[in-house]
Simulated assay, not measured.
Amino acid sequence: MGFDFIDLALLVIIFSIVGYYAYLRYREEKRKKEKQLIPTLKYYHEKFSREKREFTEKAKKFRDKMEHFRNKLQQIENEIYRYKWEKDEKRYLRNLKGTDFEWTMSFLLKILGFKVYEPPVYKDHNIDFIVEIDGFKICVDFVDYQQLKKLNENYIRQLTEGKEKYKCCGIWIISNGNVEKKDGWDRQILFFDYRDILRFFPSIRVVEDYYEVQTKFHNYELLHKETSDEIIRRDTWIKEVEEKLKEAYRKKSMVAE
């Protein structure tokens, strides 16, 4: 019994010494941490401020690039009449099929100032896109040279019903083939075949030029947004550090008193 009591007493003493030592270490670490708090906060304040300046400079460069490419897009729109059809471009137009033909011509309509969007139901009533300008809506169907055989009375009736459904003022059928215009079809249907495209539209080279510049503009727009977000983060972090510095100085002055 005595042996157990002695062992227990020794354990209590050992744990007391260890606990006291741990307490002293904790006090020492806390003191060091408090002593280093203000210098650490100052370091982070300078670090975040420096990073904010760097991101601000980057954001300005990206904004300047955006402005440069925005001006180039405007220049292409203003000088679109300069895009004349060359032999290779005519051959390229003639060979376009399916979605490539749809995308190229719909993008060209956008460059020309039309608002272009798909109907809520995909290819509803044979309508590929609805284009809008100055409040007027037009149903558009793109038919490549391989699909001309589908232009029958039933197909045209579907387009006409779609025009009424979406309250469009007319229908455009645009094809890179030669369209045989049918008597008795809705007079509000306007055909643009291969020859009409060459006559009324600028060369599709403008699509390539515009898309390239637009892509660069969007890339720099994305970089500018990401950089601006980083500036906002640094602003938040700087304010948080400044609040902590105020609190640290307040506690330090209280201890000094």
Rank of each mutant, 00 (worst) to 15 (best):
N152M: 05
I130Y: 01
I14R: 12
R82Q: 13
F142R: 05
W172F: 10
V12K: 15
K58V: 04
V18T: 11
R195P: 01
L24T: 14
I111G: 02
R233H: 14
D7E: 15
Y23W: 15
S203A: 06
D183C: 05
L73C: 03
L24F: 15
I231L: 02
V241I: 15
E221P: 01
L41V: 04
Y21I: 15
Y249C: 06
E164F: 06
L73H: 01
K61F: 09
F3I: 15
M66E: 06
G177L: 04
T215P: 02
R195T: 10
G135I: 04
S228T: 10
V206K: 00
F55M: 08
D134C: 07
E243A: 12
I232C: 08
F107A: 07
K181C: 02
L10M: 14
E57H: 11
Y26P: 06
E180G: 04
R91W: 10
I111V: 08
D193P: 00
V206R: 01
N154M: 10
S228M: 09
V12T: 14
I156H: 02
T40R: 07
K244D: 08
F69K: 02
R53A: 10
F191C: 01
R234S: 11
C139Y: 01
I156R: 01
M254E: 14
I231F: 07
C139S: 13
Q146Y: 10
D186M: 00
Y145F: 13
I130L: 05
F3V: 15
K52L: 09
D183L: 08
E34L: 07
Y92S: 12
F101I: 05
W103Y: 15
E221V: 02
L190E: 08
V143Y: 03
E230Y: 10
Y249D: 08
D235N: 15
E161C: 06
L37A: 09
L112N: 03
Q75Y: 12
Y44F: 14
W172R: 03
K246E: 14
K239L: 11
H68C: 02
R205V: 06
E247V: 07
I127P: 00
R70T: 00
L159Q: 01
K225Q: 11
H224I: 00
K60T: 09
K110P: 02
V179E: 05
V131L: 05
K33H: 14
K150M: 07
N176E: 04
I138T: 11
C139F: 03
R199N: 13
Q158C: 06
N71G: 07
D4A: 12
G177Q: 05
D186A: 00
I111D: 00
T215W: 08
I173K: 00
L96F: 04
